[in-house]
């Protein structure tokens, strides 16, 4: 089951730039939460702070508290341990180019030292089914490389890869922004099905996407969380003027 995430006073910097300012919010378990806002507003930085991915950039720095259930992710564990529990799907599909489809899905387990063949076979099949890719690839799991798939298939492969480690939270950083409309709608259907089992945080610049998939939506602007509320409230009667301007397209 997924767990909720509680963020308190999170600040982040890239070099001297203060990209995230005093963000506090509660992300409920087993729901999809969308983060919207114009580019450069800090929404991507925010999700990267949730699994400490920002630390892979040597100039990045974050302060504040992020609790995943009872676990303080900045105090109680190493980054790799956090990332094993929080899956991530990136903006551009990034399958491992030299690995087969099977190895791509199994990579999170294999490269972490898990080697039980039979269990792996089961997990690969289940994850690919969850990602709605199984039927399309089951015949050449070990023959084709992950890079040989189409863009939409690659992104679903990346989702399967993230699901294979059985994460509690799934972070998606604009997962459909590089895809065509058909692939986008497939990804959205997927998110819909997955959110009963995982806590999903999805960053998107597409408001309709947020409206379609998420129970709650947060609006970011210049590094601050302006408003966080149930999605229908954000899109029908936002309480902040800036949110309303952005939603109605009057902004920027």
């Amino acid at each position: 089951m997924g767990v909720g995430i509680r963020v308190e006073n999170l600040n982040a910097w890239y070099g001297p730039t203060h990209t995230l300012k005093d963000v506090s919010l509660h992300i409920p378990a087993n729901r999809a939460t969308a983060l919207i806002g114009p580019s450069g507003c800090g929404k991507s930085t925010f999700v990267r702070c949730l699994n400490r991915m920002h630390e892979t950039n040597p100039t990045a720095r974050a302060e504040g508290t992020v609790m995943m259930g009872d676990l303080d992710i900045y105090k109680d564990a190493a980054p790799v341990e956090i990332r094993r529990r929080i899956g991530m799907v990136f903006q551009r599909p990034n399958p491992f180019p030299t690995m087969s489809i099977y190895d791509n899905v199994a990579s999170g387990l294999k490269l972490n030292g898990f080697s039980k063949r039979r269990v792996l076979d089961e997990i690969v099949e289940r994850s690919l089914k969850q990602a709605a890719l199984w039927e399309e690839v089951k015949d050449d799991l070990k023959k084709k490389s992950g890079a040989s798939l189409s863009g939409g298939q690659q992104q679903r492969l990346c989702i399967a890869r993230a699901l294979a480690v059985d994460p509690e939270v799934l972070l998606m950083d604009e997962p459909a922004s590089a895809l065509d409309p058909v692939s986008t709608s497939k990804i959205e259907d997927l998110i819909f099905q997955l959110k009963s089992q995982y806590t999903i945080v999805i960053v998107t610049h597409n408001m309709q996407q947020a409206a379609r998939v998420a129970e709650n939506t947060g609006f970011f602007l210049t590094g601050k969380l302006v408003e966080f509320a149930p999605t229908h409230k954000i899109f029908t009667m936002p309480s902040d003027k800036r949110t309303e301007d952005y939603i109605t397209g009057r902004f920027g």
């Binding site: 969850q130 819909f192 408001m207 409206a211 229908h232 397209g249």
Partner: peptide, 27 residues
């Protein structure tokens, strides 16, 4: 999404997708 119809349109969409998405979850 024009200024007038956006706030109205969206809840409708959410409802229709909920109906389509959740029940036939494979798992």
């Amino acid at each position: 999404a024009t200024a007038e119809n956006a706030p109205l349109l969206i809840p409708k969409l959410v409802m229709s997708d909920v109906a389509h998405g959740s029940p036939d979850s494979p798992e």
